[in-house]
Design a protein around this nucleic acid. Structure first.
Length: 496
RNA sequence: GACCCGUUCGUCUAGGGGUCAGGACACCGGGUUUUCAUCCCGGCAGCACGGGUUCGAAUCCCGUACGGGUCACCA
Protein backbone atom coordinates (compact mmCIF):
# COMPACT_ATOMS: atom_id res chain seq x y z
CA UNK A 1 0.00 0.00 0.00
CA UNK A 2 1.49 3.34 -0.94
CA UNK A 3 1.23 6.12 1.57
CA UNK A 4 -0.98 8.97 0.50
CA UNK A 5 -1.47 12.11 2.54
CA UNK A 6 -3.18 15.39 1.89
CA UNK A 7 -3.61 18.90 2.98
CA UNK A 8 -7.09 20.26 2.54
CA UNK A 9 -7.29 24.00 2.99
CA UNK A 10 -10.47 25.95 2.83
CA UNK A 11 -10.14 28.93 0.47
CA UNK A 12 -11.53 31.55 2.78
CA UNK A 13 -9.00 34.30 3.09
CA UNK A 14 -5.27 34.72 3.13
CA UNK A 15 -3.02 31.68 2.97
CA UNK A 16 -2.40 30.74 6.59
CA UNK A 17 0.94 29.75 8.00
CA UNK A 18 -0.80 26.87 9.78
CA UNK A 19 -1.71 25.43 6.41
CA UNK A 20 1.96 25.37 5.46
CA UNK A 21 2.81 23.77 8.81
CA UNK A 22 0.31 20.95 8.39
CA UNK A 23 1.25 20.59 4.72
CA UNK A 24 4.90 20.25 5.70
CA UNK A 25 4.30 17.26 7.96
CA UNK A 26 1.97 15.58 5.51
CA UNK A 27 4.47 16.15 2.74
CA UNK A 28 7.39 14.82 4.73
CA UNK A 29 5.57 11.70 5.79
CA UNK A 30 4.36 10.87 2.29
CA UNK A 31 7.75 11.48 0.70
CA UNK A 32 9.64 9.62 3.38
CA UNK A 33 7.58 6.56 2.52
CA UNK A 34 7.76 7.04 -1.21
CA UNK A 35 4.12 8.00 -1.38
CA UNK A 36 2.08 10.86 -2.74
CA UNK A 37 1.01 14.14 -1.28
CA UNK A 38 -2.28 15.59 -2.44
CA UNK A 39 -3.74 19.06 -2.30
CA UNK A 40 -7.50 19.25 -2.04
CA UNK A 41 -9.59 22.36 -1.85
CA UNK A 42 -12.38 22.24 0.70
CA UNK A 43 -14.70 24.86 -0.70
CA UNK A 44 -18.02 23.51 0.47
CA UNK A 45 -18.76 26.76 2.26
CA UNK A 46 -20.13 28.73 -0.63
CA UNK A 47 -20.55 31.88 1.35
CA UNK A 48 -16.93 32.22 2.31
CA UNK A 49 -14.94 30.44 -0.38
CA UNK A 50 -13.38 32.50 -3.12
CA UNK A 51 -11.38 31.68 -6.22
CA UNK A 52 -8.92 34.43 -5.33
CA UNK A 53 -8.21 32.79 -1.99
CA UNK A 54 -7.71 29.41 -3.60
CA UNK A 55 -5.21 30.86 -6.03
CA UNK A 56 -3.34 32.56 -3.20
CA UNK A 57 -3.14 29.38 -1.17
CA UNK A 58 -1.71 27.45 -4.09
CA UNK A 59 0.77 30.21 -4.84
CA UNK A 60 1.77 30.55 -1.22
CA UNK A 61 2.36 26.84 -0.66
CA UNK A 62 4.49 26.76 -3.80
CA UNK A 63 6.31 29.80 -2.51
CA UNK A 64 7.38 28.05 0.66
CA UNK A 65 8.53 25.17 -1.48
CA UNK A 66 5.87 22.52 -1.05
CA UNK A 67 4.81 20.67 -4.17
CA UNK A 68 1.88 18.30 -4.53
CA UNK A 69 1.50 15.27 -6.76
CA UNK A 70 -2.19 15.78 -7.31
CA UNK A 71 -4.31 18.85 -6.95
CA UNK A 72 -6.80 21.18 -8.61
CA UNK A 73 -4.17 22.81 -10.79
CA UNK A 74 -2.04 19.79 -11.66
CA UNK A 75 -4.81 17.25 -11.94
CA UNK A 76 -4.42 13.58 -11.09
CA UNK A 77 -6.28 10.30 -11.28
CA UNK A 78 -8.62 10.98 -8.37
CA UNK A 79 -9.99 14.35 -9.38
CA UNK A 80 -11.63 16.69 -9.31
CA UNK A 81 -9.69 18.08 -6.37
CA UNK A 82 -12.12 20.82 -5.57
CA UNK A 83 -15.03 19.70 -3.42
CA UNK A 84 -17.47 22.05 -5.10
CA UNK A 85 -16.98 19.93 -8.21
CA UNK A 86 -17.75 16.64 -6.51
CA UNK A 87 -21.36 17.28 -5.50
CA UNK A 88 -22.78 14.31 -7.34
CA UNK A 89 -20.56 11.95 -5.37
CA UNK A 90 -21.59 13.39 -2.01
CA UNK A 91 -25.21 13.24 -3.01
CA UNK A 92 -24.93 9.60 -3.95
CA UNK A 93 -23.16 8.79 -0.70
CA UNK A 94 -25.74 10.65 1.33
CA UNK A 95 -28.60 8.79 -0.32
CA UNK A 96 -26.81 5.57 0.42
CA UNK A 97 -26.64 6.47 4.10
CA UNK A 98 -30.29 7.44 4.23
CA UNK A 99 -31.28 4.17 2.61
CA UNK A 100 -29.35 2.22 5.17
CA UNK A 101 -30.91 4.23 7.96
CA UNK A 102 -27.65 5.89 8.97
CA UNK A 103 -28.79 9.36 8.11
CA UNK A 104 -32.08 11.20 8.09
CA UNK A 105 -33.79 14.27 6.72
CA UNK A 106 -34.17 17.12 9.15
CA UNK A 107 -36.59 19.97 8.64
CA UNK A 108 -35.87 21.88 11.79
CA UNK A 109 -35.51 25.61 11.35
CA UNK A 110 -32.40 27.35 12.55
CA UNK A 111 -34.62 29.32 14.93
CA UNK A 112 -35.72 26.12 16.59
CA UNK A 113 -32.13 24.89 16.81
CA UNK A 114 -30.93 28.12 18.33
CA UNK A 115 -33.69 28.03 20.89
CA UNK A 116 -33.03 24.39 21.63
CA UNK A 117 -29.37 25.10 22.34
CA UNK A 118 -30.24 28.08 24.48
CA UNK A 119 -32.54 25.92 26.57
CA UNK A 120 -29.96 23.18 26.87
CA UNK A 121 -27.41 25.66 28.06
CA UNK A 122 -29.79 27.33 30.48
CA UNK A 123 -30.89 24.09 32.04
CA UNK A 124 -27.24 23.31 32.62
CA UNK A 125 -27.56 20.12 30.68
CA UNK A 126 -24.16 18.55 30.19
CA UNK A 127 -25.31 17.28 26.82
CA UNK A 128 -25.80 19.74 24.04
CA UNK A 129 -26.66 19.06 20.45
CA UNK A 130 -29.47 18.03 18.19
CA UNK A 131 -32.36 16.53 20.10
CA UNK A 132 -33.37 14.01 17.46
CA UNK A 133 -36.62 15.76 16.67
CA UNK A 134 -36.79 14.72 13.01
CA UNK A 135 -35.45 11.25 13.67
CA UNK A 136 -38.95 10.12 14.58
CA UNK A 137 -40.67 11.48 11.50
CA UNK A 138 -42.40 8.69 9.62
CA UNK A 139 -41.47 7.93 6.05
CA UNK A 140 -44.71 9.22 4.58
CA UNK A 141 -44.35 12.58 6.23
CA UNK A 142 -40.76 12.92 5.13
CA UNK A 143 -41.80 12.11 1.55
CA UNK A 144 -44.61 14.61 1.70
CA UNK A 145 -42.45 17.42 3.03
CA UNK A 146 -39.67 16.70 0.58
CA UNK A 147 -42.19 16.71 -2.27
CA UNK A 148 -43.49 20.03 -1.02
CA UNK A 149 -39.99 21.36 -1.43
CA UNK A 150 -39.49 22.12 2.23
CA UNK A 151 -36.01 23.29 3.14
CA UNK A 152 -34.06 20.55 4.89
CA UNK A 153 -30.70 19.13 5.76
CA UNK A 154 -29.46 15.59 6.20
CA UNK A 155 -28.05 14.55 9.55
CA UNK A 156 -26.15 11.47 10.57
CA UNK A 157 -27.52 9.04 13.11
CA UNK A 158 -25.29 8.84 16.18
CA UNK A 159 -25.57 6.28 18.98
CA UNK A 160 -26.95 7.75 22.18
CA UNK A 161 -24.96 5.55 24.50
CA UNK A 162 -21.57 3.95 24.88
CA UNK A 163 -18.34 5.50 23.80
CA UNK A 164 -16.32 5.88 20.68
CA UNK A 165 -12.81 4.49 20.75
CA UNK A 166 -10.27 5.42 18.14
CA UNK A 167 -6.52 5.61 17.78
CA UNK A 168 -4.24 8.54 17.31
CA UNK A 169 -0.67 7.75 16.29
CA UNK A 170 0.79 10.12 18.83
CA UNK A 171 -1.68 9.83 21.68
CA UNK A 172 -2.74 6.24 21.52
CA UNK A 173 -6.30 5.33 22.31
CA UNK A 174 -8.81 8.14 22.72
CA UNK A 175 -12.28 7.54 24.12
CA UNK A 176 -15.18 9.93 23.75
CA UNK A 177 -18.69 9.20 24.98
CA UNK A 178 -21.23 9.15 22.15
CA UNK A 179 -23.37 11.57 24.12
CA UNK A 180 -20.71 14.15 23.36
CA UNK A 181 -21.12 13.66 19.64
CA UNK A 182 -23.78 15.67 17.85
CA UNK A 183 -26.02 14.33 15.10
CA UNK A 184 -23.95 16.28 12.66
CA UNK A 185 -25.41 17.81 9.53
CA UNK A 186 -23.91 16.01 6.55
CA UNK A 187 -25.73 17.76 3.76
CA UNK A 188 -26.63 21.41 4.08
CA UNK A 189 -29.85 22.88 2.77
CA UNK A 190 -27.96 24.28 -0.19
CA UNK A 191 -27.25 20.71 -1.25
CA UNK A 192 -23.55 20.91 -0.45
CA UNK A 193 -21.89 18.60 2.04
CA UNK A 194 -20.36 19.70 5.31
CA UNK A 195 -16.69 19.18 6.02
CA UNK A 196 -17.34 15.97 7.89
CA UNK A 197 -19.02 14.20 5.03
CA UNK A 198 -16.90 15.56 2.22
CA UNK A 199 -13.71 14.88 4.11
CA UNK A 200 -14.53 11.23 4.72
CA UNK A 201 -15.88 10.61 1.23
CA UNK A 202 -12.89 12.27 -0.42
CA UNK A 203 -10.22 10.74 1.76
CA UNK A 204 -11.66 7.37 0.88
CA UNK A 205 -12.03 7.99 -2.84
CA UNK A 206 -8.63 9.61 -3.05
CA UNK A 207 -6.98 6.70 -1.30
CA UNK A 208 -5.69 8.72 1.61
CA UNK A 209 -3.91 6.42 4.05
CA UNK A 210 -2.81 8.82 6.76
CA UNK A 211 -4.57 11.93 7.96
CA UNK A 212 -2.39 14.47 9.71
CA UNK A 213 -4.40 17.46 10.77
CA UNK A 214 -4.73 20.00 13.55
CA UNK A 215 -5.54 18.97 17.08
CA UNK A 216 -8.75 20.96 16.82
CA UNK A 217 -10.24 18.00 14.95
CA UNK A 218 -9.86 15.40 17.66
CA UNK A 219 -13.36 15.92 18.92
CA UNK A 220 -14.90 15.31 15.52
CA UNK A 221 -12.96 12.14 14.89
CA UNK A 222 -15.83 10.00 16.24
CA UNK A 223 -18.12 11.37 13.57
CA UNK A 224 -15.60 10.49 10.94
CA UNK A 225 -14.99 7.03 12.29
CA UNK A 226 -18.71 6.40 12.39
CA UNK A 227 -19.07 7.51 8.79
CA UNK A 228 -16.33 5.14 7.69
CA UNK A 229 -18.20 2.37 9.46
CA UNK A 230 -21.50 3.33 7.90
CA UNK A 231 -19.94 3.32 4.46
CA UNK A 232 -18.03 0.14 5.15
CA UNK A 233 -14.69 1.77 4.37
CA UNK A 234 -11.38 1.43 6.09
CA UNK A 235 -10.42 4.51 8.07
CA UNK A 236 -7.05 6.16 7.43
CA UNK A 237 -4.54 6.36 10.25
CA UNK A 238 -5.21 9.44 12.35
CA UNK A 239 -2.56 11.78 13.66
CA UNK A 240 -3.45 15.07 15.27
CA UNK A 241 -0.75 17.72 15.20
CA UNK A 242 -0.36 20.19 18.05
CA UNK A 243 -1.67 23.63 17.22
CA UNK A 244 0.64 26.55 16.62
CA UNK A 245 0.22 29.08 19.42
CA UNK A 246 0.40 32.80 20.06
CA UNK A 247 2.85 33.93 22.75
CA UNK A 248 -0.07 33.80 25.22
CA UNK A 249 -0.53 30.12 24.29
CA UNK A 250 -3.86 30.54 22.57
CA UNK A 251 -4.34 29.12 19.09
CA UNK A 252 -2.35 31.13 16.56
CA UNK A 253 -4.44 34.03 15.39
CA UNK A 254 -4.20 37.00 13.09
CA UNK A 255 -4.86 39.41 15.92
CA UNK A 256 -1.81 38.42 17.91
CA UNK A 257 0.62 37.19 15.33
CA UNK A 258 1.51 37.34 11.68
CA UNK A 259 -0.33 34.42 10.11
CA UNK A 260 -0.52 35.19 6.43
CA UNK A 261 2.15 33.55 4.36
CA UNK A 262 2.23 36.75 2.30
CA UNK A 263 3.37 38.67 5.33
CA UNK A 264 6.48 36.52 5.49
CA UNK A 265 7.09 36.96 1.81
CA UNK A 266 6.62 40.73 1.88
CA UNK A 267 8.79 40.99 4.96
CA UNK A 268 11.64 39.40 3.08
CA UNK A 269 11.91 36.01 4.73
CA UNK A 270 13.38 33.29 2.60
CA UNK A 271 10.83 30.55 1.99
CA UNK A 272 13.47 28.02 3.03
CA UNK A 273 13.94 29.87 6.29
CA UNK A 274 10.25 29.92 7.06
CA UNK A 275 9.76 26.28 6.18
CA UNK A 276 12.84 25.40 8.22
CA UNK A 277 11.35 27.25 11.15
CA UNK A 278 8.02 25.46 10.78
CA UNK A 279 10.06 22.27 10.86
CA UNK A 280 11.15 23.29 14.34
CA UNK A 281 7.59 23.37 15.54
CA UNK A 282 6.93 20.04 17.25
CA UNK A 283 9.87 18.46 15.47
CA UNK A 284 13.62 18.13 15.90
CA UNK A 285 16.17 16.64 13.55
CA UNK A 286 17.72 13.45 14.96
CA UNK A 287 21.09 15.21 15.30
CA UNK A 288 19.39 18.35 16.63
CA UNK A 289 20.80 20.50 13.85
CA UNK A 290 19.03 23.81 13.41
CA UNK A 291 19.41 24.60 9.76
CA UNK A 292 17.98 22.02 7.40
CA UNK A 293 16.26 21.76 4.07
CA UNK A 294 12.95 20.16 3.22
CA UNK A 295 14.79 17.27 1.58
CA UNK A 296 16.88 16.70 4.68
CA UNK A 297 13.77 16.67 6.83
CA UNK A 298 12.05 14.21 4.52
CA UNK A 299 15.01 11.88 4.65
CA UNK A 300 14.86 11.35 8.40
CA UNK A 301 11.22 12.08 9.09
CA UNK A 302 9.53 9.99 11.75
CA UNK A 303 5.95 10.65 12.67
CA UNK A 304 6.40 9.33 16.20
CA UNK A 305 9.03 11.97 16.87
CA UNK A 306 6.49 14.77 16.82
CA UNK A 307 6.19 16.35 20.23
CA UNK A 308 2.81 17.22 21.61
CA UNK A 309 3.12 20.48 23.50
CA UNK A 310 1.58 23.33 21.53
CA UNK A 311 4.56 25.27 20.14
CA UNK A 312 4.56 29.04 20.45
CA UNK A 313 5.36 30.74 17.19
CA UNK A 314 8.39 32.83 18.08
CA UNK A 315 9.23 35.47 15.51
CA UNK A 316 12.69 36.31 16.94
CA UNK A 317 13.75 32.69 16.56
CA UNK A 318 12.40 32.66 13.03
CA UNK A 319 14.42 35.80 12.36
CA UNK A 320 17.59 34.25 13.59
CA UNK A 321 17.05 31.13 11.53
CA UNK A 322 16.26 33.20 8.47
CA UNK A 323 19.46 35.15 9.08
CA UNK A 324 21.44 31.95 9.08
CA UNK A 325 19.89 30.99 5.78
CA UNK A 326 20.79 34.36 4.35
CA UNK A 327 24.39 34.28 5.44
CA UNK A 328 25.23 30.59 5.42
CA UNK A 329 23.19 29.07 2.64
CA UNK A 330 23.21 31.82 0.03
CA UNK A 331 26.29 32.77 -1.93
CA UNK A 332 26.60 36.33 -3.15
CA UNK A 333 24.98 35.75 -6.49
CA UNK A 334 22.08 33.89 -4.91
CA UNK A 335 21.71 36.69 -2.44
CA UNK A 336 21.39 39.11 -5.33
CA UNK A 337 18.89 36.88 -7.06
CA UNK A 338 16.71 36.69 -3.97
CA UNK A 339 16.78 40.42 -3.50
CA UNK A 340 15.88 40.91 -7.13
CA UNK A 341 13.05 38.46 -6.77
CA UNK A 342 11.83 40.27 -3.70
CA UNK A 343 11.81 43.95 -4.62
CA UNK A 344 14.69 44.89 -6.85
CA UNK A 345 13.09 43.85 -10.08
CA UNK A 346 11.57 45.56 -13.11
CA UNK A 347 8.01 44.51 -12.34
CA UNK A 348 8.17 46.01 -8.92
CA UNK A 349 9.92 49.16 -10.09
CA UNK A 350 7.31 49.51 -12.82
CA UNK A 351 4.67 49.88 -10.13
CA UNK A 352 6.61 52.68 -8.53
CA UNK A 353 7.64 54.65 -11.57
CA UNK A 354 4.31 56.42 -12.14
CA UNK A 355 4.51 57.76 -8.59
CA UNK A 356 8.23 58.32 -8.48
CA UNK A 357 9.13 59.85 -11.80
CA UNK A 358 7.16 63.08 -11.27
CA UNK A 359 8.62 63.50 -7.80
CA UNK A 360 12.36 63.13 -8.25
CA UNK A 361 14.68 65.85 -9.35
CA UNK A 362 17.70 63.60 -9.39
CA UNK A 363 18.05 59.88 -8.99
CA UNK A 364 19.62 60.49 -5.62
CA UNK A 365 16.16 61.50 -4.42
CA UNK A 366 14.81 58.04 -5.13
CA UNK A 367 15.79 56.19 -1.99
CA UNK A 368 14.56 58.92 0.30
CA UNK A 369 11.24 58.89 -1.47
CA UNK A 370 10.68 55.16 -1.48
CA UNK A 371 12.47 54.03 1.65
CA UNK A 372 9.22 53.23 3.43
CA UNK A 373 8.32 50.77 0.69
CA UNK A 374 11.35 48.68 1.56
CA UNK A 375 10.88 48.51 5.31
CA UNK A 376 8.51 47.11 7.87
CA UNK A 377 7.53 49.64 10.56
CA UNK A 378 8.38 53.31 10.28
CA UNK A 379 9.30 55.56 13.21
CA UNK A 380 6.38 57.71 14.27
CA UNK A 381 6.23 60.97 16.17
CA UNK A 382 3.03 60.79 18.24
CA UNK A 383 2.62 64.57 18.34
CA UNK A 384 2.76 64.79 14.61
CA UNK A 385 0.44 61.82 14.22
CA UNK A 386 -2.18 63.39 16.42
CA UNK A 387 -1.80 66.83 14.84
CA UNK A 388 -4.50 69.16 16.07
CA UNK A 389 -7.02 66.38 16.63
CA UNK A 390 -7.92 64.30 19.67
CA UNK A 391 -5.73 61.21 20.02
CA UNK A 392 -8.77 59.05 20.66
CA UNK A 393 -10.37 60.22 17.44
CA UNK A 394 -7.29 59.48 15.42
CA UNK A 395 -6.98 56.08 17.02
CA UNK A 396 -10.60 55.41 16.22
CA UNK A 397 -10.08 56.19 12.54
CA UNK A 398 -6.95 54.08 12.40
CA UNK A 399 -8.67 51.22 14.16
CA UNK A 400 -11.70 51.32 11.89
CA UNK A 401 -9.36 51.23 8.93
CA UNK A 402 -7.55 48.22 10.36
CA UNK A 403 -10.80 46.38 10.82
CA UNK A 404 -12.17 47.19 7.40
CA UNK A 405 -8.91 46.45 5.67
CA UNK A 406 -8.77 43.08 7.33
CA UNK A 407 -12.20 42.23 6.03
CA UNK A 408 -11.53 43.43 2.50
CA UNK A 409 -11.90 40.59 -0.01
CA UNK A 410 -9.33 41.45 -2.61
CA UNK A 411 -6.42 43.67 -1.81
CA UNK A 412 -6.55 46.45 -4.42
CA UNK A 413 -6.00 50.17 -4.41
CA UNK A 414 -9.65 50.76 -5.29
CA UNK A 415 -10.81 48.54 -2.47
CA UNK A 416 -8.65 50.41 0.01
CA UNK A 417 -9.77 53.75 -1.31
CA UNK A 418 -13.42 52.74 -1.04
CA UNK A 419 -12.94 51.88 2.60
CA UNK A 420 -11.10 55.09 3.36
CA UNK A 421 -13.68 57.26 1.65
CA UNK A 422 -16.50 55.58 3.49
CA UNK A 423 -14.75 56.04 6.83
CA UNK A 424 -13.97 59.64 5.96
CA UNK A 425 -17.59 60.32 5.24
CA UNK A 426 -18.60 58.81 8.54
CA UNK A 427 -16.08 60.97 10.36
CA UNK A 428 -17.54 64.10 8.80
CA UNK A 429 -14.07 65.40 8.10
CA UNK A 430 -12.61 66.69 4.90
CA UNK A 431 -10.59 64.05 3.12
CA UNK A 432 -7.36 65.97 3.44
CA UNK A 433 -7.80 66.21 7.19
CA UNK A 434 -8.95 62.65 7.54
CA UNK A 435 -6.03 61.11 5.67
CA UNK A 436 -3.29 63.11 7.32
CA UNK A 437 -2.66 60.73 10.21
CA UNK A 438 -2.68 57.88 7.74
CA UNK A 439 0.18 59.45 5.86
CA UNK A 440 2.12 59.65 9.05
CA UNK A 441 1.22 56.13 10.02
CA UNK A 442 2.25 54.77 6.66
CA UNK A 443 5.20 57.01 5.80
CA UNK A 444 6.36 58.32 9.12
CA UNK A 445 5.93 61.83 7.71
CA UNK A 446 2.99 63.94 6.60
CA UNK A 447 3.91 63.85 2.94
CA UNK A 448 5.08 61.13 0.69
CA UNK A 449 3.87 58.85 -2.04
CA UNK A 450 0.12 58.57 -2.60
CA UNK A 451 -1.47 56.78 0.31
CA UNK A 452 -3.63 54.18 -1.40
CA UNK A 453 -0.89 53.19 -3.78
CA UNK A 454 1.49 52.84 -0.88
CA UNK A 455 -0.95 50.60 0.92
CA UNK A 456 -1.59 48.50 -2.13
CA UNK A 457 2.09 47.99 -2.78
CA UNK A 458 3.00 47.24 0.82
CA UNK A 459 0.21 44.73 1.03
CA UNK A 460 -2.49 44.10 3.57
CA UNK A 461 -0.31 42.75 6.32
CA UNK A 462 2.36 45.40 6.47
CA UNK A 463 -0.27 48.10 6.09
CA UNK A 464 -2.08 46.65 9.06
CA UNK A 465 1.14 46.44 11.03
CA UNK A 466 1.86 50.11 10.46
CA UNK A 467 -1.64 51.26 11.36
CA UNK A 468 -1.51 49.20 14.53
CA UNK A 469 1.91 50.55 15.28
CA UNK A 470 0.51 54.08 14.94
CA UNK A 471 -2.33 53.25 17.32
CA UNK A 472 0.24 52.05 19.82
CA UNK A 473 2.22 55.25 19.35
CA UNK A 474 -0.84 57.17 20.54
CA UNK A 475 -1.12 55.02 23.63
CA UNK A 476 -3.12 52.13 22.27
CA UNK A 477 -6.69 51.05 22.83
CA UNK A 478 -7.87 49.13 25.86
CA UNK A 479 -10.27 46.25 25.80
CA UNK A 480 -13.20 48.41 26.74
CA UNK A 481 -12.49 50.96 24.06
CA UNK A 482 -12.08 48.25 21.48
CA UNK A 483 -15.43 46.81 22.37
CA UNK A 484 -17.09 50.18 22.07
CA UNK A 485 -15.42 50.87 18.75
CA UNK A 486 -16.41 47.49 17.39
CA UNK A 487 -19.99 48.33 18.19
CA UNK A 488 -19.75 51.68 16.51
CA UNK A 489 -18.19 50.11 13.45
CA UNK A 490 -21.00 47.60 13.23
CA UNK A 491 -23.50 50.42 13.39
CA UNK A 492 -21.78 52.13 10.49
CA UNK A 493 -21.84 48.93 8.50
CA UNK A 494 -25.53 48.56 9.17
CA UNK A 495 -26.34 52.10 8.16
CA UNK A 496 -24.54 51.92 4.83
C1' G B 1 -20.24 24.39 31.95
C1' A B 2 -19.46 19.36 29.60
C1' C B 3 -16.01 16.53 26.89
C1' C B 4 -11.15 15.88 24.77
C1' C B 5 -5.85 16.93 24.43
C1' G B 6 -1.50 18.64 26.59
C1' U B 7 2.59 20.17 30.57
C1' U B 8 11.39 19.71 30.55
C1' C B 9 15.08 26.78 30.96
C1' G B 10 11.13 33.12 29.02
C1' U B 11 10.57 30.46 23.86
C1' C B 12 11.58 25.88 20.39
C1' U B 13 13.17 21.28 22.04
C1' A B 14 16.71 16.49 23.32
C1' G B 15 16.20 12.98 26.82
C1' G B 16 11.22 7.08 27.30
C1' G B 17 13.94 4.14 34.84
C1' G B 18 20.60 5.25 36.91
C1' U B 19 22.71 11.82 32.46
C1' C B 20 26.75 17.14 36.05
C1' A B 21 19.07 17.06 32.62
C1' G B 22 21.97 18.38 26.46
C1' G B 23 21.31 21.95 22.32
C1' A B 24 19.07 26.39 19.88
C1' C B 25 16.66 31.43 20.17
C1' A B 26 16.41 35.53 23.48
C1' C B 27 19.22 37.86 27.42
C1' C B 28 24.02 39.09 30.09
C1' G B 29 29.55 39.11 30.14
C1' G B 30 34.35 38.49 27.48
C1' G B 31 37.50 37.92 22.90
C1' U B 32 38.46 38.77 17.35
C1' U B 33 37.08 42.75 13.84
C1' U B 34 38.93 50.65 12.15
C1' U B 35 32.57 50.91 13.66
C1' C B 36 28.52 47.61 13.31
C1' A B 37 27.14 42.81 12.09
C1' U B 38 29.38 38.08 11.73
C1' C B 39 32.50 34.60 14.31
C1' C B 40 34.57 32.45 19.00
C1' C B 41 34.41 31.73 24.45
C1' G B 42 31.64 32.03 28.95
C1' G B 43 27.15 32.94 32.01
C1' C B 44 21.92 33.10 33.57
C1' A B 45 17.83 29.86 33.47
C1' G B 46 13.90 24.22 33.40
C1' C B 47 11.63 18.54 34.62
C1' A B 48 3.87 22.24 37.28
C1' C B 49 2.39 20.00 42.15
C1' G B 50 1.02 15.72 45.35
C1' G B 51 0.82 10.69 45.90
C1' G B 52 2.19 5.86 44.45
C1' U B 53 5.41 1.69 41.62
C1' U B 54 10.84 0.89 42.09
C1' C B 55 17.10 -0.21 45.12
C1' G B 56 16.51 4.21 41.91
C1' A B 57 12.04 8.27 38.73
C1' A B 58 12.14 14.19 34.25
C1' U B 59 11.16 9.23 32.39
C1' C B 60 5.81 4.37 34.44
C1' C B 61 0.66 4.80 37.13
C1' C B 62 -3.14 7.79 39.72
C1' G B 63 -4.87 12.40 41.32
C1' U B 64 -4.63 17.93 41.49
C1' A B 65 -3.36 22.45 39.25
C1' C B 66 -2.57 25.13 35.01
C1' G B 67 -2.80 25.81 29.63
C1' G B 68 -5.26 24.70 25.11
C1' G B 69 -9.09 22.77 21.91
C1' U B 70 -14.19 21.36 20.75
C1' C B 71 -19.25 21.80 21.60
C1' A B 72 -22.56 25.47 13.77
C1' C B 73 -26.56 24.16 7.75
C1' C B 74 -17.43 27.14 9.17
C1' A B 75 -13.61 24.41 8.02
Amino acid sequence: MTVRTRVAPSPTGDPHVGTAYVALFNYCFAKKHGGQFILRIEDTDQKRSTAASERMILDALRWVGIEWDEGPDVGGPHGPYRQSERSALYKKCTENLIEKGHAFHCFCTSERLIQMRAEQRQSGSPVTGYDGHCLSLDKAEVERRLAAGESHVVRMVVPREGECVFDDVLRGEIRIPWTQVDMQVLMKSDGLPTYHLANVVDDHHMGITHVMRGEEWINSAPKHQLLYQYFGWEMPVLCHLPLLRNPDKSKLSKRKNPTSLWWFREMGYLPEGLLNYLGHMAWTMPDERDVFTLEEMVEVFKLEKISLGGPVFDVPKLNSLNARWIRERLDESEFIERLVKWRLNRDYLARLVPMVQPRVQRFTDLIGLTDTLMSHLVPIDPEQLRGSREASEVMRDLYFAVQRITALDEWTKDGVEGIMRALCEHSGLKMRVFVKPFYIAMNGRPSGLPLFDTMEILGRDITRDRLNHAIQALGGLGKKKLKKLDKELQAIAASV
